[in-house]
Simulated assay, not measured.
Amino acid sequence: MDFIKLQYFISTARHLNFTKAAAECHVAQTVISRQIASLEKELGVPLFFRNKHKVELTPIGSDFYRDAVYLVQYQRSMVDRLHGKESSCTGFLKIGVGPYEEELIQKLLLRFVADQPQINVSCWMFSYDVLPFRFNRDLVDVAFTTNHCARLFQPAQTKAVYPPHWVLMGKKDLPFWSDPDSNIRSENVIIQEDMATDAFFQQCTVSGFNPKCFLKSNFYSTQRLMADAGCGLALIPEYCRLSEDERSVPLPMKEYIPDFVVAHNPENHNPALTVFLNYLQENDFSSYLNR
């Protein structure tokens, strides 16, 4: 099998865009398209879904992507050994995160990259409805997400990394802070769409947590945007940093509130993933949190 074709395939699978893949490989787009078509003919299976608007990996293409990365890495290390030198890179690791988890892993990622410079790391953020799709097709090696989202991962092994500690966040000058328990009835609360379940709303009623209205958003950044604009109080994880003109109060309920987990596919044998999981095992995750 031609390793040049594999490199073109890997670049296209990474970008899901023939033009960007061509730019990365320093060839014309027609070369990429022709080589991918040749590879599909050689394998006898389609690797991509194509239409005028987007390019997506087929399920077989997703499986082949992981194997292709390993083959190219092995080929490069073999050539290096033949020339009497060791490759400085021993693997590639793709980390997926949901809307809230950027701040959760920021310090962890900083230290891991410093301690393991031989591993190339890339990070990808997805909404909670897209992350399971990416995980289940092996487009990320490991994911930091909520336990609610991780239930859609198949197969997956999960480990809790942060408890369900959430707060209501808003501007310091809001009248709400004078008496949060009473004033909550006159305030909107901005929540993630993923959290808006019947069980959550029922538990709010049982716990006496009855804001004026629940407003939905699909990303942490847009929750903050809405809170800063005065749309309401944002319900966010406790570990999230606040600005000088913001304050928070703990959410007065724990049931049906997600905690945070790290998840991986136990059938994924990427050596870089093994290094990362061992690193998590050997280090106290709480020491990496932004306080």
Results as ranks from 00 to 15, higher is better:
S11F: 07
A13W: 01
R14G: 06
H15N: 13
F18K: 03
F18L: 10
A22R: 02
E24V: 06
H26W: 07
S33R: 04
I36V: 11
F48M: 05
F49M: 09
F49N: 14
K52A: 15
V55N: 11
T58H: 03
D67F: 13
A68L: 02
R76M: 09
G84M: 03
S88H: 12
F92R: 10
E102S: 14
Q106T: 14
L108T: 04
L109K: 03
L110R: 08
R111V: 11
F112M: 03
S122N: 06
F126Q: 06
F126G: 00
S127E: 12
P132G: 02
D138P: 04
D141T: 01
T145G: 00
H148M: 07
Q157A: 14
Q157V: 13
P164W: 01
K171M: 12
D173Q: 15
S182I: 02
E187H: 10
I191T: 04
Q192E: 11
D194S: 12
A199T: 09
F209D: 05
N218A: 08
Q223S: 12
M226G: 07
A227G: 09
A234Q: 06
A234P: 10
L235Q: 12
P237L: 06
C240E: 15
D245Q: 13
P250F: 04
L251H: 07
L251I: 05
M253D: 06
K254H: 14
P266T: 02
L273M: 03
S286M: 03
L289F: 00
L289V: 10
R291M: 02
